[in-house]
Design a binder for these strands. Structure first.
Lengths: 192, 192
DNA sequence: TTCCAATCTGGACAGTGTCAATTTGGTGGA
DNA sequence: TCCACCAAATTGACACTGTCCAGATTGGAA
């Protein structure tokens, strides 16, 4: 378990909020958010067990930041995949595949993004809300460009890749199977 | 918070395993599995904080049983919906809708079923494995009956309803929207 | 330079999962 | 009938957690 480079000069840390965030993201790569304790994060940042409370309201506050960072990464992965692809059909499949791949490669980050105990869509964060909107927008316009024509179709795409990503991350089906299902199911949905 | 009728006669409980299970299922209707403590369940069953250890290996053991019971309920809901419907297309849509509805109506039960920290598909339980197989079988044969033709299609159906159920339970879209998406997306997938 | 507000520390408390040692009460064998 | 035994349940203890509180320390503004 690596420590985050703290560069402390003395009593005051300087940029503890980011240090804690970085330490927590490192832990999130190894274990589920549920198993990450505030004290553990404080220890990793080489700071007293109470220091985090000056930068996050509580444990949930930290997890919210982890969710925001993870969501930004997820959106970026989908955005890049969409941009890198040729035709609109391939782009939609590539975007969906990127979504599934992210869920499998960053299972704990993916979980915390959609954990209702961390982020309640009813009370969206200023950072999280636009990210969700962007994700829906990316999938929606990719779906339209590929030949689908309404909001329900876009949500269908989201639901499909989200479900496959979740099942895949939980170990219920292997990644290559999930990716094949993404391609074939989207292929069935699209007009041909 | 109701106590489960314990009918204790004395020092020995008689059927503590089931009493604990019932108490925990009752708690699961109100709060996520993550927030249910072993001691709380023991208290609800009117028993010492260590009594559960004679019936479950540890906290995870209890949660596994909750997952098995919840999965049985989910499978039953899908099975009933499939059986109650007329044509094969309607049946598939009804089964998918039942899946989504279960996720929304029993969000904590649905969560614990697919929580990789509770049930790892790599080491399946004797009770859980056949339930998962039955669920896949139900969705698979319904998909085939409706006109889809291979395993990938069946997994696509599962992925779609699982994703929509998860997103819906997490509050990312309302139930009626999700049900409409189930119908329209499955309609697109099916040959017409 | 003085003083303040933000930051960090230590101590404390209730709650938790789990281990260990102990008590209880029914059951099978003499 | 009695007694030894065993599973079930108990109390006690420990380390760990989130969070509240009071005090210490600091950088920077007045």
């Amino acid at each position: 378990m690596l420590l985050v480079s703290s560069s402390r000069s003395g009593y005051h840390h300087g940029d503890l909020a980011h240090a804690l965030e970085a330490a927590a993201m490192q832990l999130l790569a190894e274990k589920p958010a549920q198993d990450i304790s505030l004290r553990e994060v404080a220890r990793a940042a080489d700071v007293s067990h109470n220091a985090p409370y000056h930068h996050f309201a509580d444990r949930r506050g930290l997890l919210k930041v982890l969710a925001e960072r993870s969501m930004a990464d997820l959106v970026a992965a989908v955005r890049d995949a969409l941009a890198a692809s040729g035709g609109p059909r391939d782009a939609l499949i590539a975007g969906g595949s990127a979504y599934v791949r992210f869920a499998v490669e960053h299972p704990h980050g993916f979980d915390v993004v959609y954990d209702p105990a961390v982020c309640v869509p009813g009370e969206p964060t200023d950072t999280m809300a636009p990210l969700i909107a962007e994700l829906e927008g990316l999938l929606g316009s990719a779906a339209v460009a590929a030949g689908l024509d309404d909001a329900a179709d876009a949500l269908g795409v989201w639901g499909l890749v989200h479900g496959l990503g979740t099942l895949c991350a939980a170990g219920h089906l292997p990644l290559d199977t999930a990716l094949a299902v993404v391609a074939s199911t989207l292929g069935r949905m699209l007009p041909h």
